[in-house]
Design a protein around this nucleic acid. Sequence first.
DNA 1: CGGAATCCGATCTGATACTG
DNA 2: CAGTATCAGATCGGATTCCG
Lengths: 120, 120
Amino acid sequence: MTTNCKAREVVGRIGSKWAIYVISSLDEHTMRFGDLKKTIDGISQRMLTVTLRSLERDGLIRRTVYPVVPPRVEYALTPLGRTLLEVVSTMVHWTDEHMAEIGAAQSAYDSRPEPEPIEQ
Amino acid sequence: MTTNCKAREVVGRIGSKWAIYVISSLDEHTMRFGDLKKTIDGISQRMLTVTLRSLERDGLIRRTVYPVVPPRVEYALTPLGRTLLEVVSTMVHWTDEHMAEIGAAQSAYDSRPEPEPIEQ
DNA sequence: CGGAATCCGATCTGATACTG
DNA sequence: CAGTATCAGATCGGATTCCG
């Protein structure tokens, strides 16, 4: 594999379960922190913060702070993030389409007979 | 997000840095354990084993053991895995294409000035 | 509202040693 | 060759508390 280590790290970050859904959520419009938290079911405040920071650092989303009280922070896809969105959407879509098949495969795998213990 | 928790787990497994490259590696032909280890640079034996097991459980790859000495084990994509391959290739390709941009964004982020400490 | 900081158990991962 | 078993260090991730 010619791919170097840095590319792998990026793939890992992008492919992480939360990042994918953050990117997807920003498809149509910018969102505030609270909006994202409500939209992405089950994400903790901490993980949302961490995920947003890493996506911002990779140049995939832009964070805009409005100096008002109470604070207002909006997240939006950058042009780069928007090119990624297509890839990510495909992935989410593929998963939704094949969840049943995957679940069946898991059940089959889990109910497979144990290999016979070695006779002495 | 209407996506349930199980779908997120699947996305996370598929998107994990090693799984993506295992799937990609099986594009053209079946491969043996050692081949995969050599192809996927930097993967430890343990992580390759763990990754292969999880992909097998999800029905994405098929593991074939030939009862010979020394053992011969071949891994191949299932039809389901083959449909995923397209998605995964797109992702790897996107990352390769945009590594420079991402690196630049990271540098810019990391060299950003610290926010001024609060004056008392 | 949108975090940051801390604590801490759970999980991941690599290294190493061993095996059919 | 293709693993399994085990252990220790690293990282993840939730809960909680506090802040501008």
